[in-house]
Structures are given as structure tokens and as C-alpha cells.
């Protein structure tokens, strides 16, 4: 059941793979990984990949907003991909799509 988060550089994007449950327990590790990859790879285009994610609550929104502040400070961009219907609903309710658009890659 446990899916680890990690990242990978694909072309001009850095893709961050999110775990099956994005909540208060998993968010510190995701923040850590995102920061590490920003340090190593630069921060031009960050893609959060929800392909493995079946649950997310407001802790995930807080984590994404914190990344947005860091990334836009460096003039970078964040995109979201692979969201299922439920995750997409949570993201829509939070209004976060206006600053992090969905992309299909």
C-alpha cells in the first residue's frame, strides 16, 4: 500500500511523485523532497504528479501553497498532473488551480 514520494527530471520539467495519501503525516517528507530537488535541479518548472494519490486533505493544500511561495520567489512555475476525480475536487475547492494549472504530460 505504501507509495513513496520521489522526483525525476523529465526534459524541462522536474516531476515530483506524490504518495497514495497526501496528509499531515506524509507532507513533511514531500516538502523535504521538493526542497531538495529545487536545490539540485533548479526550480523553473515543477510538476506534482498525483497518479498514485487516492487521498488528500487540507494539509496537502498547505504544502502546495508553501511550495508556490518558494517557487514563485525564484520565478518558477508549478503544474499539477495525474489527479483523480476526488483529488481534483479538493484542488478545485481550494482555488489552487488558478496559480498551479493542470497539465497533461
Amino acid at each position: 500500500m505504501k507509495t513513496e514520494s520521489g522526483y525525476q527530471c523529465v526534459g524541462e520539467y522536474v516531476r515530483i511523485y506524490l504518495p497514495s495519501e497526501v496528509d499531515e503525516n506524509s507532507c513533511p517528507q514531500i516538502s523535504h523532497i521538493a526542497r531538495e530537488c529545487m536545490k539540485k535541479q533548479g526550480v523553473e518548472q515543477l510538476v506534482f504528479d498525483f497518479s498514485n494519490t487516492v487521498f488528500m486533505d487540507s494539509a496537502g493544500i498547505g504544502m502546495l501553497l508553501a511550495r508556490y511561495k518558494e517557487v514563485s520567489f525564484e520565478k518558477g512555475k508549478i503544474f499539477l498532473t495525474g489527479e483523480n476525480e476526488r483529488v481534483s475536487r479538493i484542488l478545485k475547492m481550494s482555488g489552487i488551480y488558478t496559480i498551479m494549472p493542470h497539465i497533461h504530460i
Partner: peptide
């Protein structure tokens, strides 16, 4: 100071 969104109660109500 933490990475909070302040949306917890709003989600509960929704």
C-alpha cells in the same frame, strides 16, 4: 509558521 492552508474547518463544513 507551519505549512497550513487554514482550510480545515471549511472542508469539514463543505
Amino acid at each position: 509558521d507551519l505549512e497550513r492552508s487554514g482550510m480545515g474547518f471549511s472542508f469539514m463544513e463543505a
